[in-house]
Design a binder for these strands. Sequence first.
DNA 1: ATGAAATTTAACTATATAGTTTAACCAAAT
DNA 2: ATTTGGTTAAACTATATAGTTAAATTTCAT
Lengths: 211, 211
Amino acid sequence: MTRPATSDNQTRQRIFRAAAEVFEEKGYTGARMQEIADRAGINKALLHYYYSSKEQLFMAVFHVLLKKMFEKIFSIFSEEISFKEKLKKFLEEHIEFMIKNPKLPIFLLNELSQNPALAEGLKEMINYGELRDMIYTRHAKELKGYGIKKNDMPQLMVTVVSFSIFPFAARDMIKIMMPEMGDTKKFNTYMRERKSFASDFIMAALKHHKK
Amino acid sequence: MTRPATSDNQTRQRIFRAAAEVFEEKGYTGARMQEIADRAGINKALLHYYYSSKEQLFMAVFHVLLKKMFEKIFSIFSEEISFKEKLKKFLEEHIEFMIKNPKLPIFLLNELSQNPALAEGLKEMINYGELRDMIYTRHAKELKGYGIKKNDMPQLMVTVVSFSIFPFAARDMIKIMMPEMGDTKKFNTYMRERKSFASDFIMAALKHHKK
DNA sequence: ATGAAATTTAACTATATAGTTTAACCAAAT
DNA sequence: ATTTGGTTAAACTATATAGTTAAATTTCAT
């Protein structure tokens, strides 16, 4: 009855992390249970002892990663600071987050696109309506000062997140067009420069926005 | 020796189109040769009569689609019009192109990310260095007027294309956050509004850009 | 020491799928 | 009419992979 002091949750964790790695790299259909077992340093029998099926394991991993992505975005947007500060902070933190999880966006977007039902679990967890209204309400004066109407919010929000997410999603296309950014170090430097480029760019656009 | 008046190239085309559809929807690993044959209205034997292997068929499809994507971008950027006009035209045409090919970006980005070698064929076909320098040289005065240095060009170019590509790549995430854009019609309307939003936004940012 | 859970080993089953084969059939060019 | 190449049908092979099983071994709490 007693929980044995052995790995247990440690093994579960090792499996989970290995699975997250493999799924992120290869996607659901490309991932192999054998490879997950190998990376976790165990065998297939034990893998199925902890997770009964590939699908179950994938679901566990996918939902954690999707939540991770959204929470990172939402947590910054819900802070009680000015829009300008929020924007700056978002770009700084989110780009650092993306540098640590560069494969996350393509993985999530691709799996979602191939199986839209994957979003089901999260639609309730995320109080999107709430947050969207909140952002505009909280920054109403500041945004109106820039001539941004409530109507413009979806365009603006998609634009803001695209600054940090798109280059990672399009990483390999950027490699084709700009081979000088081939290696990760240079690309990360480029992305760190993008923090201030993006917040300057967006603020400049807002200040000059037609009313 | 004479080309038979039968389908021949028509069948090849039907196969190619069916394959493009299935690969775009399911990706390489998710696609099934049987499904491609079914959609082309033929059987597997004939499919392999035209394309000896899944990989060969995939390569043919992938390269055409990747080229299609790049050519659309490049053709507009190489025209002899002012930067402002080019920007406007790019967003208009490229967003219409994306509306017609909404699954293209995720497909290309995902396959490239899982197999970077896929880019090999195209690196030579695309005269990236040429084009990049050309853009800055041709619009040197205009861009300098906006305080854009040659150094800023990679940031600016990625930004511009992200306006049209990102929302399609992130389509299913947008669905989660903004359920009112769930159906294709509303999303396309949103994207058509984005044409002018984006070009106004970018021009405003440039005009206000610190020198 | 004993028992229970964790883990390994290795062989196994079931299934999906890419690709093959063969024989027959059809359509059109000569 | 004969030939050639496009096409079908259906059964087939080979292989990869998810998942199972059972017996043996290890680990650890008691």
